[in-house]
């Protein structure tokens, strides 16, 4: 299957690039752990179990950290105009989008996987009980984040304002992702059952993901031509 081979090559390229030049992933990870620590300074070390502050802290951390990663993911492509070389390959433009989206998804997801245990330890939550259901929410939320984030970071890195522009255009659009993920995470942290109490939120996250992957897949080529 050619599209899948192309996808594999594209994602491998991004991962190899990250491994060889290094540093971005580590910086993002340090940043997100640092934000969690700062939150504990700001809010106290034990979160009131009544309120769903935990979900909010986690997702704000991920949103900020992913801004760093998303900005970097395109500025590195534009160095030496290597994006032009990628565009010259006989691969459908939509596949280029899916590839970039998946590498962003993978990077952000790795960061989340390392940050979550630290968060759970710092704020004294039962780790083993929380991580399995939380993984589903992390995947759905991060897919939404990177589906829109990928195409918008392509836009923001091509303007004068660059880094500051991405959160401005990205955050309003992914409001539903933030709300949905925070609710689901809150329910998990309070010990509730994810499928029973947050089924509609999970469905909304899934709809958001599918919708924006399809829309971005269709309009990505217009953005690429202007980079």
């Amino acid at each position: 299957m050619k599209p899948f081979n192309d996808l594999y090559t594209l994602i491998k390229k991004d991962i190899l690039d990250e491994l060889r030049t290094g540093g971005t992933l580590i910086s993002m990870l340090l940043f997100s752990v640092l934000v969690v620590v700062i939150f504990s300074f700001a809010l106290g070390t034990t979160l009131s179990k009544e309120k769903e502050l935990g979900g909010g802290i986690l997702w704000l951390t991920f949103f900020f950290a992913s801004i760093l990663g998303l900005n970097y993911s395109f500025s590195v492509e534009k160095e030496n105009s290597s994006i032009k070389a990628v565009m010259l390959t006989p691969v459908d433009r939509g596949i280029l989008y899916i590839g970039k989206m998946f590498s962003n998804l993978i990077f952000i997801f790795i960061i989340e996987l390392f940050t979550v245990p630290v968060f759970l330890v710092f704020f004294d939550y039962p780790i083993l009980k929380i991580i399995p259901p939380l993984t589903i929410v992390l995947l759905l939320g991060t897919a939404g984040l990177s589906s829109v984030g990928t195409i918008l970071s392509a836009i923001s890195t091509s303007t004068k304002k660059r880094d500051i522009l991405l959160p401005l255009i990205l955050f309003p659009i992914i409001t539903p992702v933030l709300i949905g993920s925070v609710r689901c995470t809150g329910i998990i942290l309070l010990g509730g059952s994810l499928l029973e109490e947050a089924g509609n939120w999970l469905a909304m996250l899934a709809v958001f993901d599918v919708l924006f992957i399809v829309v971005s897949f269709l309009i990505y080529e217009f953005v690429l031509e202007e980079l």
Binding site: V148, I151, L152, I155, S158, T159, I169, I173, T175, P176, I179, G180, R183, N200, W201, M204, V207, F208, L211, F212, V215, S216, I219, F222, V223, E225, E226
Partner: peptide, 25 residues
């Protein structure tokens, strides 16, 4: 023009989901 057109499309497609999520919230 292209960038804002892309935003115009994404933004409008987003409106129903924003409405729904905020209502549930």
């Amino acid at each position: 023009a292209v960038f804002s057109a892309v935003l115009g499309v994404i933004g409008f497609v987003d409106i129903p989901i924003v409405f729904m999520s905020v209502r549930w919230w």
